[in-house]
Nucleic acid binder design. Sequence first.
DNA 1: TTAAGTGCAAACCTTTTGCTGCCCC
DNA 2: GGGGCAGCAAAAGGTTTGCACTTAA
Lengths: 144, 144
Amino acid sequence: MKNQRIINIFKTYLAHTGKKITWEREEILTLLLEKQGHFKVEDIVKITESSKNRISRATVYRTFNMLESAGIISHFYDHNHEKSYEINHEHHDHLICAKCGKIIDFTNEDQEKIQKQICSQYHFFPIFHSLHIYGICQNCLTKD
Amino acid sequence: MKNQRIINIFKTYLAHTGKKITWEREEILTLLLEKQGHFKVEDIVKITESSKNRISRATVYRTFNMLESAGIISHFYDHNHEKSYEINHEHHDHLICAKCGKIIDFTNEDQEKIQKQICSQYHFFPIFHSLHIYGICQNCLTKD
DNA sequence: TTAAGTGCAAACCTTTTGCTGCCCC
DNA sequence: GGGGCAGCAAAAGGTTTGCACTTAA
């Protein structure tokens, strides 16, 4: 299963960088993979707080940073300017409604193709991109 | 001159929203227009600190927020995750080097065209977009 | 065994806010 | 003259860090 693959990537990363595989680290990544979509540090803190295996806020922060260094997750800022994360294999671009905060994920091939063209034009080697379009979603548009 | 036009937009905005035109507000916008490119709150604080007309950090923050509400500037996060601003009429997308932090500005018509297509596909009314591609610039690539 | 990890609380940094005297309209 | 201002310092919010104890390998 795909999730197991990602967990293994993380374990390999930990081994590679002389870090240890603790149940807290596994648990956090597992929760992220279960949750899918977008998540904040606080989400995870709260989930573990209401379970028998509480994990401290500091550890969640440290683990998120590690997961980001490992290239497994990435962050962006939502319509409230709050930091939000997502799994990289689910990477897509975002339409963010300025009114209700809804986030519509999308990917578009032409879009990606043009980005590659732009990079080669500037002799730039791309690693990661983020495209966010802020506006008003259909639902909020029709409500007025 | 273009800068005067922007200053007038700001003045109109202030008048419209029952706010006052103070020398601090004019000075901050003038500095931004002179500086061009990208700037941080701290940049402006430092510039005024070393001049005869010091402006407090609180006022710079308040004015930046006001300028952003007025649609005159927008923010993004640089390669150090630090908040950075730019004038909107100079809006363009960014290639950000993860090594040296250099920011290459660009605009691309095809890119914008596709974004419009995507929005109409999702019945989404776009207001503002931000496209950042993180990677390694030519200079840093050849240095290794 | 022992290097690295966790939890806690304190420290940090950036940004916002309450208040007082001040200035623009 | 009076309602918004600027400056200050304190507070807030989010994130990191030093330390003492614990744990994976």
